[in-house]
């Protein structure tokens, strides 16, 4: 099961024209968080908000739809969102916190919920955990290398960046540039090389671009909380869906990429264990399913 436990897989997008314009893919994250805010399912959300430098996000507690939408779009660098959860509860006094998290961040949150050693009264206030798929992440200086050095563009001019079809893309007002993903190798965050989760297996609901056509997202509903908020948003007409079977390239590609990531990274884990380096995961020989996330 390389996609984790899920209830339903769907292709989906926000029906809101404004969200469609600014979102990375189908705008599922922005649409669901705004909807949950309106419906008081959450009273605020931690997102990767705009920072001082263009494309260098800062974790932010968003209390309005405007703030949520200002955080739309993928930034391929670090946004330590988990850091802000305590602040959301303490300084902002939120009782029901929503958040968006890449797989490793969902791991930090779920571990804290199961074993809250030092984190007093935060665990029970996480009301909605939306996960986004993640193959790898990059230090900000790596991004600068791709954009400024390799493509010769100032980051301020970039309106969107994306990884797809074997390339790293940037879009400016009047241009579309790319470098082959091969050229990004060696610039990834090294902690990603032992990561065994592609599709945020522990989120309430996970979403990403792979599997669905441009402008659409692939959604996996996982927990009751995730399923219910998604269904309510669909019923309210804020999200439209298509069966995965009707879209191309479909779930097969998602499964393939998830499997590739896990296989490659389990190999790295095995190598590190053989070298005697610490890794919090098991060697493949110790596991019934070598692709499981532990």
């Amino acid at each position: 099961m390389v996609l984790g436990t899920y209830k339903e897989a769907l292709s989906a997008r926000s029906t809101d024209k404004q969200i469609q314009k600014i979102a990375q893919d189908g705008g599922i994250v922005s649409a669901l968080l705004s909807f949950a805010l309106d419906e008081k399912i959450i009273d605020g959300a931690v997102v990767a908000g705009p920072g001082k430098d263009m494309w260098k996000p800062e974790p932010q507690v968003a209390l309005t739809s405007d703030e949520l939408l200002a955080a739309a779009g993928t930034k391929y660098t670090f946004s330590p969102n988990v850091w802000m959860l305590k602040k959301a509860v303490r300084q902002y006094g939120l009782e029901k916190v929503g958040t968006v998290a890449i797989p490793c961040q969902t791991m930090g949150i779920r571990k804290m919920q199961s074993y809250p050693f030092g984190v007093r009264f935060v665990a029970d206030k996480i009301a909605l955990l939306l996960g986004i798929y993640c193959m790898e992440n990059f230090p900000f200086a790596s991004l600068q290398t791709f954009i400024s050095e390799k493509m010769g563009v100032s980051p301020e001019l970039v309106e969107k960046m994306d990884i797809g079809k074997g390339k790293f893309w940037i879009y400016t007002a009047d241009d579309e540039l790319s470098i082959p993903l091969k050229e990004t190798h060696g610039y990834e965050q090294s902690g990603c090389k032992v990561c065994l989760d592609y599709v945020a297996e522990l989120a309430d609901l996970s979403t990403g671009s792979v599997g669905s056509p441009d402008g659409w997202s692939t959604v996996l509903t996982r927990t009751d909380a995730g399923e219910s908020v998604f269904k309510l948003a669909v019923d309210a007409g804020l999200i439209e869906t298509k069966p995965m079977a009707d879209v191309k390239p479909g779930l097969g590609l998602l499964e393939k990429l998830a499997k590739d990531k896990k296989t490659k990274n389990q190999k790295t884990i095995d190598e590190r264990i053989a070298m005697g380096l610490p890794v919090p995961y098991k060697a493949s020989t110790e596991k019934e399913d070598p692709l499981a996330n532990f």
Binding site: P59, F78, S79, P80, N81, V82, W83, M84, L85, K86, C104, Q105, M107, G108, I109, K111, M112, F117, G118, V119, V122, N137, Q189, S190, G191, C192, K193, V194, C195, L277, P278, V279, P280
Partner: peptide, 16 residues
């Protein structure tokens, strides 16, 4: 130092 950090921020959140 062990090439394990992934910038999640859980440590910063939990420090009392």
């Amino acid at each position: 130092n062990q090439a394990l950090c992934i910038a999640c921020g859980t440590c910063a959140m939990s420090c009392p």
